[in-house]
């Protein structure tokens, strides 16, 4: 396991309180967590246990009330292109084409036109949207929008990917296909991934490590290491080892 010094992401005693009216609500309670370079970690837990809050803190879109969130040893101060975020609602810019969306981050980084084109092209191909490079988001299906969002996040070459229930809205078939694609791309271009999901199967299938959270207050409840080999195939999905891990995670989520 990773230690504090080699951890890519280090969450130290992070609490996040929300004050609504007079009520003080603890969304995260002293969460401590280390994530190593190139590790694929999934976060599962009941609704409201603070998964999104934790992800937003890592993204720099929210800040801890107390404690530290460190990325590469530095406290997170705000969002940055080193951490790509894939939002549950896709959050594609509807006025830009697929290509325009994928090029967005490259433009803000000041990448020249020619190189922008080429890099966007590469990632559009990676997610299999080359036929739709000039399509507007409104003409894409949910799964295609999701793939576009993935390409957009990948294009700026973030070393960390933060994904918040990215496949939540998809049908089972598309979901499995995108899971496999995601692992393919992760195998091809390693990144540190923090992936939030409600789905226990998905959590086990994708992860090197599953972190199970509990609610009220939001905290880390259990950690399950997933030592299944890569590439993860359908055989693995149907294997008894997978079933055993899934059961462990299931127990942790549903019998907290």
């Amino acid at each position: 396991m990773s230690t504090a010094t080699t951890a890519r992401i280090a969450v130290r005693d992070v609490s996040r309180h929300f004050t609504v009216g007079r009520e003080r609500f603890t969304a995260l309670d002293r969460v401590t967590l280390d994530i190593a370079d190139n590790e694929f970690v999934t976060l599962v837990g009941p609704s409201g246990c603070g998964k999104t809050t934790l992800l937003n803190i890592l993204a720099g879109l929210d800040h801890p009330t107390s404690g530290d969130a460190l990325v590469g040893g530095e406290p997170v101060r705000g969002p940055g292109p080193g951490r790509g975020v894939i939002f549950q609602q896709y959050a594609l810019f509807p006025w830009l084409t697929v290509r325009g969306n994928v090029e967005f981050g490259l433009r803000t980084a000041g990448v020249g036109r020619r190189e922008r084109r080429e890099r966007a092209e590469h990632f559009i191909r990676l997610v299999g949207l080359e036929q739709f490079a000039d399509a507007l988001p409104k003409t894409l299906s949910g799964g295609m929008k999701q793939r576009c969002a993935i390409a957009r996040a990948y294009a700026v070459n973030p070393s960390i990917l933060l994904m918040d229930e990215p496949f939540g809205a998809l049908d089972a078939l598309t979901r499995v296909r995108l899971q496999e694609q995601l692992l393919d791309t992760w195998n091809a271009e390693r990144r540190t991934v923090v992936f939030v999901t409600h789905d226990v199967d998905e959590a086990v299938f994708l992860a090197n490590r599953v972190i199970v959270m509990a609610a009220r207050p939001g905290r880390v409840f259990a950690t399950v290491d997933v030592d299944l080999p890569h590439p993860r195939t359908e055989q693995i999905r149907l294997s008894p080892e997978f079933a055993a891990l899934r059961n462990r995670v299931w127990q942790a989520v549903h019998h907290q």
């Binding site: 720099g60 969002p79 292109p81 609602q89 967005f104 803000t108 700026v156």
Partner: peptide, 19 residues
Amino acid sequence: TLINAARVLGAGDATVFAR
């Protein structure tokens, strides 16, 4: 979410506004 999406892609205030 769109503003956040732009910010995590490295956009500053001016870029968020214009784009």
